[in-house]
């Protein structure tokens, strides 16, 4: 019974992977480059920055950077909590 379940799961995963590989786009040809062209055309005007990566990280996806800063803060707090000196 367990063997047949595993075989079915294997067939489903392998089939979906093979299907995805068969329908893959040719290498180096992005199908959806709408956002790429948007950022290349407008980020210099909207964010007033030559560095498009910085414009995305700090302007368009500022929430993401706020989460990264929170992750760093949490890591520091965790280190301080684990390595604190116990009294007595």
């Amino acid at each position: 019974m367990k063997r047949w379940v595993l075989l079915a799961a294997f067939l489903v995963v392998a089939g979906s992977l093979l299907l995805g590989a068969a329908r893959m786009r040719p290498f180096g040809a992005p199908r959806l480059d709408l956002m790429d062209r948007y950022f290349n055309a407008l980020s210099q005007g909207e964010a007033a920055t030559n560095n498009v990566v910085t414009a995305i990280v700090f302007d368009y996806r500022g929430y993401d950077t706020l989460g990264e800063a929170t992750v760093l803060f949490t890591a520091v707090v965790g280190v301080a909590l684990i390595l604190r000196r116990l009294k007595g």
Binding site: A48, T49, T54, A55, F58, G62, T65
Partner: peptide, 13 residues
């Protein structure tokens, strides 16, 4: 590029 650009991005940096 010019250093005096970017709006809030340099301050956030």
């Amino acid at each position: 590029g010019f250093l005096n650009t970017g709006g809030t991005l340099p301050l956030m940096n």
